[in-house]
């Protein structure tokens, strides 16, 4: 232990005093995510308004947590919902059970379901966490910004 060691140690302390805090003001500034971050699900529509989901239940079969429930029904000329033969009459995801692994996204042959970036999903009740088809067809609310060191990605304001 030399006499200068204490000064060296305090040098680190005083240098750190001058740096900016690393804290993210969370509720005001969302933490940026990477493009492949998996958050809340979303079901997609074709450009003509038909649903991409054809009710094949492959997502439900792939789901390791068994949180997806699909009940399919035949399309009729009068009542055409999806582009295929059948459509999902009931499409429910129990978000409280979902582990956000993205297997449903991989299993889907029509890219009807994707995982968005939204991660603020807390609820007061378990019932509110069962997302039905009309909820899932809407765009995910409160999407956080993309991380700034993604090539070509937007640079979030106020983020280093």
């Amino acid at each position: 232990m030399g006499r200068l060691d204490a000064l060296k140690g305090f040098g680190v302390t005083f240098r750190t005093l001058l740096t900016k805090p690393v804290t993210i003001g969370y509720p005001e500034h969302k933490t940026p995510v990477y493009p492949r971050f998996r958050g809340r699900h979303r079901l997609w529509l074709h450009d003509d308004g038909l649903e991409k989901c054809v009710g094949c239940s492959l997502c439900a079969a792939a789901c390791p947590a068994d949180c997806i429930r699909v009940v399919a029904e035949e399309n009729t000329p009068e009542h055409r919902v999806s582009a295929g033969e059948r459509y999902a009459r009931i499409y429910e995801i129990n978000m409280a059970r979902c582990i956000f692994c993205g297997y449903c996204e991989i299993a889907c042959p029509f890219d009807a379901i994707t995982l968005e970036h939204s991660y603020e999903l807390s609820e007061y009740t378990r019932e509110a966490l069962i997302y039905t088809k009309d909820v899932l067809l809407e765009p995910a609310p409160k999407q956080p910004p993309l991380h700034s060191n993604v090539p070509g990605g937007p640079i979030p304001p106020g983020e280093a």
């Binding site: 509720p27 603020e120 807390s122 609820e123 007061y124 378990r126």
Partner: peptide, 27 residues
């Protein structure tokens, strides 16, 4: 865990991001 204790807020995720937990604390 709501089978044994009353739960006020459910935070989904596996595991939830720390921000998700903070939102849970917020609500």
């Amino acid at each position: 865990c709501d089978k044994v204790i009353p739960v006020d807020v459910y935070v989904p995720g596996c595991p939830p991001r720390p921000e998700s937990l903070m939102e849970g604390i917020d609500i």
